[in-house]
Design a protein around this nucleic acid. Structure first.
Length: 559
RNA sequence: CGGGGAGUGGCGCAGUCUGGUAGCGCACUCGGCUGGGGGCCGAGCGGUCGCAGGUUCAAAUCCUGUCUCCCCGACCA
């Protein structure tokens, strides 16, 4: 099928100097991809074969749940985007045609599918409906990074479900979730389904599929029976030893000490005994003070969700004018509403006194200040998960997500149906995305070793990497040529290294490229009438008798 | 958008401070030797030093502007 002497698979001894992520380095070195610009990548033949294997698996699993494939344009009129309010998104590429009509390059296809469904679907009899495509997406990313992990142009499998009510949506959602699990399993990934932020789209539920790996951009909080994106994770904080309670707060001089570390060191208490006050300006509410335990970090997404409104950090002049001197502010006697994080509890706490160079100790929430309690901190490794397990935090790549959209798109785009009673209702939608390139990268990140890529059998660009150590015209080469023909005839996908190169180069390239089974035909083996097969994953070696090598190789592949 | 770094042959880099013949390793081409882990010898090809302007007798090198790429952060339907 493919002879390496003729193939366009440019391997590199060294990775480009600017590559950081393992998958980025190996994909470039193995000749899978090449860069054209920031976040713009070309798939070379070997890389494209892998990507298409992922797509084939996705396609099969989508069709198995009754999801129908279609294809929508990437270049679209701006109008539906203006209707849904997404025309304002910074990441959306916008352009005009020669007549001056505004167009966009789609970043997803909710507007497009909904546009079509709105025109064709009229009756409850047309529902439920599930559609998908495997199509290019364009996003003007502020910072593309890590090879194929975060790019401005990428392929996405995006599916959309259309139901008459929430119950139907839940069924479609579960069907997709089932397919997602099968897809990721078949791709050989370690993955977690985690609760995720529904974001500004305000849907009724969302889950992300995370593949843990060092290059991951997201963090997932994991415990037995619990998995959530750190963006939304919630857990019980680790306990702290607090100073003794007091009858009333007492001032203590802390000249020039403004950070948690300085104050806790000076007063000889744990950082967790302090209350950190973060002044924020909340949309529609004005200046508020958010309180966190001294050793905790604010989770902006949780705060935004809990408030149901956007917010920003207060400016120093706003703090000085309305609360007190920056670095010494606290809730006791403050003139602004106080939001206390759940993890702050007990008595004997320490906080700023709203006076220069002064803190208060012996502070007790409720007694000394009123508050609204919200869970707004970022969970940490060692916290206790809702199920009672201990939280661990791992970096992960988001390889897919599923989302209950509700009527977010059907209402502005007029996608409605008539029920049995002739009453019009908006269609209830879901959307479901998978990034094949991220699956490829995650697979490499999770499985590669120091010699190169280690593909699972389902993703390997070729099943067999056949290496002839002899050069053209030599006797040993004829045996390799013959085996190549036999493997092909038997239906195997074979990459045949027939180059006139040294053995070191050929063997190293085979390991770099990572196909499941390498078969070496060389003088040494042929002397005993065998070829040498080795499995890339695990390294098991087998000597196959020459005359039966093709058949035995195929049976090794089935394992 | 903030901070940092880099653009010199296909890849990796030196040369820039202190202006004066563009260099090294790998790759590539040709010839030969070698042949189980990127081997050796010899001969070659290939670069207006990101771009534009300026200073100078003279600019990869100094000055100004600009573009691109990478990393950290912010951001990420």
């Amino acid at each position: 099928m493919t002879r390496l002497s003729q193939a366009f698979i440019p391997t590199l001894k060294d990775a480009p100097a600017d590559a950081e992520a393992i998958s980025h380095k190996l994909m470039v070195r193995a000749g899978l991809i090449r860069q054209m610009g920031a976040g713009l990548w070309t798939y070379l033949p070997a890389g494209w074969r892998v990507e298409r294997k992922v797509e084939a698996i996705i396609r099969e699993e989508m069709e198995a749940i009754g999801c129908q494939e279609m294809l929508m344009p990437v270049l679209q009129p701006a109008e539906p985007w203006q209707k849904t309010g997404r025309y304002e998104i910074d990441e959306l590429f916008k352009l005009d045609d020669r007549k001056g009509s505004p167009l966009v390059l789609a970043m997803t296809h909710e507007e497009a599918v909904t546009y079509h469904v709105a025109r064709e679907v009229r009756s409850y009899r047309d529902l439920p409906l599930m559609l998908f495509q495997i199509q290019t997406k364009e996003r003007d990313e502020p910072r593309p990074r890590a090879g194929v992990l975060r790019t401005r142009e990428f392929t996405m499998k995006d599916a959309y479900s259309f139901d008459r009510d929430e119950e139907g949506l839940s069924r479609s959602y579960e069907a997709q979730a089932g397919a997602y699990g099968r897809i990721l399993d078949r791709c050989g990934l370690r993955w977690y389904k985690v609760e995720s932020d529904v974001g500004m789209m305000g849907g009724s539920g969302a889950d992300e599929y995370m593949a843990p790996c060092p290059a991951g951009e997201n963090e997932v909080a994991l415990a037995p029976g619990y998995a959530a994106n750190v963006e939304v994770a919630s857990a019980t904080a680790q306990p702290v030893e607090l100073p003794a309670a007091m009858d009333a707060p007492e001032k203590v001089a802390t000249p020039g000490l403004t950070t948690v570390e300085e104050v806790s060191a000076a007063l000889k208490v744990a950082p967790a005994a302090l209350i950190k006050a973060l002044p924020v300006v909340v949309e529609g509410r004005g200046l508020n003070m958010v309180l966190l335990r001294g050793d905790h970090r604010l989770n902006e997404i949780k705060l935004r969700n809990a408030l149901g409104a956007d917010f920003r950090q207060a400016k120093p002049e706003e703090i000085d004018a309305e609360i007190g001197p920056t670095g010494f502010i606290g809730p006791v006697g403050a003139k602004v509403p106080v939001i206390k994080d759940t993890a702050i509890a007990g008595a004997g706490l320490i906080c700023g006194a709203n006076q220069p160079d002064t803190h208060l100790r012996g502070v007790q929430p409720g007694r000394d200040f009123a508050f609204e309690e919200l869970d707004v901190r970022t969970v940490e490794a060692g916290d206790t998960a809702p199920g009672g397990g201990t939280i661990e935090i791992e970096p992960a790549i988001e390889v897919g997500n599923i989302f209950k959209l509700g009527t977010r798109y059907s209402v502005p785009l007029g996608a409605t149906f008539l029920d049995e009673g002739g009453v019009e209702h908006p269609i209830v939608m879901g959307s479901y995305g998978i990034g094949p390139a991220r699956i490829v990268a995650a697979s490499i990140e999770q499985r590669a070793d120091e010699r190169g890529i280690v593909w699972p059998a389902s993703l390997a660009p070729w099943q067999v990497h056949l290496v002839s150590l002899a050069k053209g015209g030599e006797r040993e080469r004829e045996a390799a040529d013959k085996l190549y023909g036999e493997l092909e005839a038997a239906g195997a996908e074979v990459l045949y290294d027939d180059r006139d190169a040294g053995p070191g180069e050929k063997l190293t390239d085979a390991e770099l490229l990572g196909c499941s089974l390498r078969i070496v035909v060389g003088r040494r083996g042929l002397a005993e009438g065998v070829v040498e097969a080795s499995e890339r994953d695990g390294g098991a070696e087998h000597k196959l008798p020459l005359e039966d090598a093709a058949a035995q190789a195929l049976s090794l592949l089935d394992v």
